[in-house]
Design a binder for these strands. Structure first.
Length: 300
DNA sequence: ATCCAGGCCCGAT
DNA sequence: ATCGGGCATGGA
């Protein structure tokens, strides 16, 4: 992976295990817009990023080498060798082999903790287009303008302090629905210093999970998503309906299986790589509707 | 119109 | 411990 600067753009040549669409559209983040194929706008880390593919180059428009080193390298997890991750998973069983092959350009993002927490609180019992809309509404109302593209203004996700100004009513106006009160509790507990990054990094994944679940509206699924998508806890295994289905289908002979059993199985089988396995499997399951009542095919 | 969505809370067993 | 109903909202 060679990095260079061309004018005001930053260029990566032959990016390893990185397909923009696969990384963005696999359900881990909500603040992006597709312009054309492999050409996206991302709002993250207080920045507006136009990123696109041009032949064997991945272009970060108007991006300095400093911003890449300080922000995007970590955000896109470019410090990790995904070839090793994929090889290890692919060797575990044929299901994972197929799931990895299906989307070899997924990387697990390292998103901002607070944004990730609020976003996944909003995700519960909701659909992705609606989640994106609510997060965008909150950002426009409480965040700062980060830039403009094609005449459209974009707003960063608010900080804890900025969102502290919100009340339940205004969050309802942002279409958060019954989750508005959950957001209020999360903002309060973050503001009270319950989730300082220094303290969190001293906790085991299980301890951190319990602490996150002290927030009203945060259960095991949201807690695991936050740990995996913003805190690099790759031993977290977010288990939603799709993961439940794909795990039951392939590892429990099609039998409906409890959350506890599934997480136990994941820990044993995917040890150390649970989070990566989860994301490839989730993506695979959702695409082929594995285990869903209207299954598209026998998944292959 | 009814059903359901990357769940979780809450009250009943 | 585990189970089922209810929940704001909008698209199919």
């Amino acid at each position: 992976m060679e990095i260079s600067e061309k004018g005001s753009n930053l260029i990566i040549k032959n990016a390893d295990s990185f397909v923009i669409s696969q990384t963005l559209e696999c359900g881990q983040c909500f603040r992006f817009e597709k312009l054309t194929d492999e050409n996206y706008i991302i709002v993250a880390m207080g920045k507006l990023l136009h990123i696109f593919k041009n032949g064997d180059e991945t272009v970060f428009e108007n991006t300095s080498k400093d911003d890449f080193e300080n922000i995007w390298k970590s955000y896109f997890d470019f410090g990790r060798d995904y070839k090793t991750v994929k090889d290890r998973l692919s060797a575990m069983d044929n299901t994972l082999l197929d799931a990895v092959k299906y989307a070899p350009g997924i990387r697990i993002l390292k998103q901002d903790f607070f944004e990730c927490l609020i976003s996944f609180i909003i995700s519960q019992n909701n659909r992705i287009p609606m989640i994106k809309k609510v997060v965008a509404n909150i950002s426009e109302k409480y965040g700062k303008e980060t830039g403009e593209f094609n005449g459209i203004k974009y707003y960063s996700f608010p900080s804890i302090q900025e969102l502290s100004k919100a009340d339940e009513e205004s969050l309802m106006e942002c279409k958060a629905g019954f989750r508005a009160k959950y957001i209020m509790d999360a903002v309060k507990k973050c503001g009270d210093g319950m989730f300082e990054s220094k303290d969190m990094s001293a906790l085991t994944t299980e301890e951190l999970r319990k602490r996150l679940m002290q927030i009203n509206g945060v259960g095991p699924k949201v807690a695991d998503c936050v740990m995996l998508f913003s805190l690099s806890r790759s031993d977290a295994f977010p288990t939603d309906v799709w993961v439940k289905r794909v795990m039951s289908y392939f590892y429990f002979d099609g039998n409906d299986t409890s959350l506890k059993e599934i997480q136990k199985m994941a820990k044993e089988r995917f040890s150390g790589y649970e989070g990566f396995a989860q994301q490839y499997l989730f993506n695979y399951a959702r695409e082929f509707k594995i285990g869903a009542s209207d299954k598209k095919a026998g998944a292959k």
